[in-house]
């Protein structure tokens, strides 16, 4: 991977961040959906004594649906504005994919950084193993970004994007969500690294496979 390739990928990332800060297209959708859902969940369930399994599942459900509302935007915006064609004439597909993947990962990381403390406070969650919890969340973010970036590129060329994005994403993301919920359950329940080992392994494998396969397939999706 040359420094020239990295510079170009970072230019795509910087361009997306700059346009996002001026339009708030994805940020608003992502954060409003996540915080509205969190408030609704905490008001309706916050008084109940929920088990760590339920708390783990609710945490990832909020992240999953928030990401469904915003993460396809990186490619949809390019197709709608007809800038995708201009990009195709200036850069290799791998450069575009890398820039968009890092952007989606960054967006989800910021979401989780803001959502997690609020979730802990609103839902009265005790986290006995923060390092494990953070590792699981980080691996979940990487896997989620890897899958939603390539699926976003696919649905950007379709007419019924919103519905298609969720429909395509759900089966692809199911193994990731199961592992992320299991890993979070282990972190919140005090099972430790030994209890989370299989979930962490699955999360690592999912992220590696998804990003590798997406990088290989992206040429066909982008130029198809």
């Amino acid at each position: 991977m040359s420094s020239d390739w990295t510079t170009k990928a970072l230019a795509v990332l910087a361009k997306d961040i700059r346009t996002e800060l001026r339009t708030r297209y994805s940020l608003n959708a992502l954060f409003m959906f996540a915080f509205t859902t969190l408030v609704v969940v905490s008001f309706s369930l916050g008084q109940l004594s929920l088990g760590v399994q339920v708390l783990s599942a609710l945490y990832w459900i909020i992240i999953f649906f928030a990401s469904m509302s915003a993460l396809s935007g990186v490619f949809v915006k390019e197709e709608d504005a007809k800038t995708a064609q201009t990009l195709r004439l200036f850069a290799r597909p791998s450069v575009i994919y890398a820039g968009k993947l890092i952007y989606n990962t960054l967006l989800l990381t910021i979401l989780c950084a803001l959502l997690t403390p609020l979730y802990v406070v609103f839902m009265n969650v005790t986290v006995p193993d923060w390092p494990l919890f953070l590792v699981v969340v980080l691996l979940g973010i990487i896997g989620l970004s890897g899958a939603t970036t390539i699926i976003g590129a696919i649905v950007a060329k379709a007419n019924v994007r919103g519905a298609l994005f969720a429909v395509l994403s759900f089966p692809v993301l199911l193994p990731l969500l199961v592992a992320a919920i299991g890993g979070t359950d282990a972190a919140l329940g005090g099972a430790g690294w030994a209890g989370a080992e299989n979930h962490v392994k699955l999360l690592v494998a999912y992220a590696v496979i998804m990003i590798t396969a997406s990088a290989v397939l992206f040429d066909f999706v982008w130029n198809g």
Binding site: T7, K8, A11, V12, A14, K15, R18, T19, R22, T23, A81, K82, T83, Q85, T86, L87, L89, F90, A91, V95
Partner: peptide, 20 residues
């Protein structure tokens, strides 16, 4: 039919595409 980035300035478009 080929668009540039409306939410970037002229200079920012030139800088972005020259980097690419």
């Amino acid at each position: 039919e080929m668009a540039l980035y409306e939410m970037l300035t002229g200079y920012e478009n030139l800088r972005f595409f020259s980097t690419l």
